[in-house]
């Protein structure tokens, strides 16, 4: 136990880098998520369960199922993302690391973006990757599998970004979960409409490029606005 520690060194410290902060936060969040592996699998299991419930509730009729498969898979994916959103900031809020994140010299929106990217890598991306499996079970035509994955990749990133705003607004509330769905689901409708619509068009063999472009545009818009809005919401959640 020595009192030997580096004292104040310079009058003006050079500022730490933006990229360094982004990478450190992204790395830390990914590592945290992989350390809780069971939680990592939860959204995927939830996704598979919802998809299983629908044939049980409707009928084991493959023409019926393949007709509703695009919408069904999309709704199930959307709900799985929603389910995982509540934990996006809550753990960090509880143990005080969120406070420290906002106190970092880097702009909060960039660090929030790092957290959102980590969230997408561990929910949206795996959901998109396993979706063909469940699509086969719903007898979705084989030629539209690629489009399904592509729309889920693009769309789930938008869902993570928009959802982060809701998660940030409700992080300070004790029962934020239900409220979060109320806030976020209306905002999710355009993504659902375009995501499921694109897959349906692909099933019919129609041109999908304009629809994919619109999904890309929505992703670009939310990439621009959501981290900023989520950072502002986090600041006020910590205030209150």
């Amino acid at each position: 136990m020595t009192a030997e520690r580096a004292g104040p060194r310079r009058a003006v410290e050079p500022l730490p880098g933006l990229w360094q902060g982004f990478a450190a936060t992204l790395g830390r969040d990914c590592r945290l998520r992989f350390r809780r592996r069971s939680e990592l699998a939860n959204p995927l299991i939830f996704f598979a369960l919802i998809v299983t419930l629908f044939p049980l509730g409707l009928a084991p009729d493959s023409t019926l199922l393949s007709g509703i498969a695009p919408g069904l898979l999309w709704v199930a994916a959307l709900l799985s993302v929603l389910l995982s959103l509540d934990g996006l900031f809550r753990d960090d809020f509880d143990d005080g690391t969120l406070e420290q994140l906002l106190l970092a010299p880097q702009p909060a929106s960039v660090l929030v973006l790092a957290k959102i990217v980590a969230h997408w890598l561990t929910t949206g991306l795996p959901l998109a990757l396993i979706s063909p499996l469940l699509a086969v079970m719903l007898s979705l035509p084989g030629h539209s599998m690629g489009v399904l994955m592509l729309t889920l990749l693009l769309g789930s990133a938008t869902l993570s970004l928009v959802g982060a705003i809701g998660a940030a607004l409700t992080v300070g509330l004790r029962r934020g979960g239900v409220l979060l769905s109320l806030l976020i689901l209306p905002l999710y409708t355009p993504v659902l409409i375009f995501g499921a619509g694109t897959v349906r068009l692909a099933v019919d063999g129609a041109v999908i490029a304009p629809w994919l472009a619109l999904m890309g545009a929505m992703l670009a818009l939310s990439l621009l606005a959501a981290p900023w809005a989520a950072a502002a919401a986090l600041k006020l959640s910590l205030d209150g």
Partner: peptide, 23 residues
């Protein structure tokens, strides 16, 4: 609130802070 992640090791926790605050 201490600002320490319980699932990470002590070293990983400090390393994040160090990466955030230093050049």
């Amino acid at each position: 609130r201490p600002g320490v992640k319980k699932a990470l090791t002590a070293l990983e926790n400090l390393d994040w802070y160090q990466a955030m605050s230093t050049v």
